[in-house]
Design a protein around this nucleic acid. Structure first.
Length: 492
RNA sequence: CGGGAUGUGGCGCAGUUGGCUAGCGCACUUGGUUUGGGACCAAGGGGUCCUCCGUUCGAGUCGGAGUAUCCCGACCA
């Protein structure tokens, strides 16, 4: 089954879609561009949510919830913002259906037309800032640090499971601050939270950087992002953190009384990551046998497969596994015993590999004799014989080893696929092979557009810490002077 | 929204120049034998062939329109 993944897939995109479906993460729904997240996939998302949520709380944020519907007039208050989202909004125009007069099904009741149309939120800045207006009066109310877990709708032209669906799940943080410096610090803090999460939980190395003006969030003064490299060398924007200046405060008239008694507009940030992270997880680590999950996000850490011929053997092995399971669970592992009696061991091995379970333990008659167990690692596909009494401790350490190993693998891969390029010919050649290209850029929109037209590559970001980029040189396209390298890549 | 491909049991597919009761593999059900890397035998169940219109004695097959999905662009978290 797993082997079909690559043989039938003509390219990486199809391989990805196949993998998502076969590994039981998600599937297309009856609604165009939407997806059904299946229980196994959702379990991974929940793990992401819990880890992120903890990080948000640790940085002083609280959760709240705001409405799904946004009055059309709200969206138009901030000019750039509405322009950025206008083309992809779902609009509610009526609130009632009625029986079709001709007797066939139902139709929209024309008398139930809404006075003002409602927009299904593509992001919540407007409705949140309309609320903040009432929450913020004094400098004592600041900073206001709120996060919301929600679904949003963006009517995209083209969709792909997890990467770009019409409806997706995400979190969006919206904060208000007394000064620009505080807001900028907040947006930097949160992009670092995302980078830490990607590194420590997803085992995906990311580049932190600034977006160029043309890639900036609609309504932001600055957009920080994390960019991850997938196994085909393409980039995936995995999270963003925006410094919104006073744009929304002015549009929604959010002012506070400062210590001196004067009125000032507040400074804003917003930041978010979405179920797209699931896509990043799949594309960063998976191989032809299926998913490879980092232990920190795996719903199941250890799966145990019994091998037996007789009822008696079965009973003994399951008893042994039950005891092991309890021992491992006490050490914080999530353990599953696959006791299905209609499937052979080989089938189960393949199936759990497809689902990316980090560690598999098989115990059979041979092991009963010897007191050992066969332990297989998902990341390296290697097997080892381990004494049963050491299994629990071994599994605990193994989780750590695997987590580190797949991160290192991804990091090495990125290092091998990131190069400095200084000539246009080399740029055109390497960009087709799937690389992050560190290049000089003259800083103009025109050059950025021309390069995209000719090669389909975009500036993913102006990197901050990851690479040493501050050096003088000349633009790879125009030859004009430049003081810093940026990352060019093809992106999802 | 442009370009391309594809719609046939749950999944993956075949179906010839239009022809007779629409097939195959997987999955499913029952019984048996199996079980250390995707088992085997036997017997079963399951189809408005995407929709509508047309051509024809006869349409899964030909024509038209619609629709959905996927891929490639443009757009995007």
């Amino acid at each position: 089954m797993a082997k079909e993944l690559t043989s039938r897939a003509e390219n990486y995109s199809q391989w990805y879609n196949d993998l998502v479906v076969k590994a039981d993460l998600a599937e297309s729904s009856a609604v165009r561009g939407c997806m059904v997240i299946k229980p196994y996939g959702y379990a991974i998302w929940e793990k992401m949510q819990h880890s992120l949520d903890k990080m948000f709380k640790n940085t002083g944020h609280s959760n709240a919830y705001f409405p799904l519907f946004i009055p059309k007039s709200f969206l138009s208050r901030e000019a750039e913002h509405v322009e950025g989202f206008a083309k992809e909004c779902a609009v509610v125009t009526h609130h009632r259906l009625m029986k079709n007069p001709d007797g066939s099904g139902v139709v929209v009741d024309p008398s139930a037309k809404l006075e003002e149309e409602l927009i299904v939120r593509p992001t919540s800045e407007t409705i949140i800032w309309n609320t903040y207006k009432n929450w913020i009066k004094s400098w004592r109310d600041l900073p206001l640090l709120i996060n919301q877990w929600a679904n949003v709708v963006r009517w995209e032209m083209r969709t792909r499971l997890f990467l770009r669906t019409a409806e997706f799940l995400w979190q969006e943080g919206h904060t208000a601050h007394a000064t620009a410096a505080e807001a900028i610090a907040e947006s930097e803090k949160m992009v670092n939270v995302y980078a830490t999460f990607a590194r420590d939980f997803m085992a995906v190395p990311v580049v932190i950087g600034h977006k160029t003006e043309s890639e900036r969030f609609a309504g932001a003064l600055d957009t920080l992002c994390i960019e991850a490299m997938m196994q085909d060398g393409k980039a995936l924007q995995a999270g963003t953190s925006h410094f919104l200046g006073q744009n929304f405060a002015k549009a929604f008239d959010v002012q506070y009384a400062n210590k001196e008694g004067g009125l000032e507009y507040v400074w804003a940030t917003s930041w978010g990551v979405s179920t797209r992270l699931m896509g990043a997880l799949v594309m960063a680590h998976s191989d032809d046998n299926g998913l490879v999950l980092p232990p920190k996000l795996a719903p199941i850490h250890v799966v145990m497969v019994p091998i037996f011929k007789t009822d008696e053997e079965h009973k003994t092995i399951i008893a042994k596994m039950d005891a092991l399971k309890i021992e491992m669970e006490n050490k914080g592992l999530s353990v599953k015993i696959d006791d299905r009696d209609n499937l052979r061991p080989g089938f189960k091995f393949a199936e759990w590999e497809l689902k990316g379970v980090p560690c598999r333990i098989a115990i059979g008659p041979r092991d009963l004799e010897s007191g050992m167990a066969e332990v297989a690692r998902r990341d390296t596909l290697t097997k080892e014989s381990i004494p049963q009494e050491n299994l629990a401790d071994y599994a605990v350490t193994l989780m750590d080893t695997i987590q580190k190993n797949i991160y290192q693998k991804a990091l090495d891969f990125r290092a091998q696929h990131t190069i400095k390029v200084d000539t246009w010919d080399e740029f055109k050649e390497k960009i087709e092979q799937g690389y992050f290209l560190l290049c000089h850029w003259d800083g103009t929109k025109e050059t950025e557009e021309k390069i995209q037209e000719e090669t389909n590559a975009t500036i993913r970001c102006i990197p901050i810490d990851t690479f040493v980029c501050e050096e003088s040189g000349t633009c790879v396209y125009s030859g004009k002077p430049s003081s810093c390298r940026v990352i060019f890549a093809k992106a999802y």
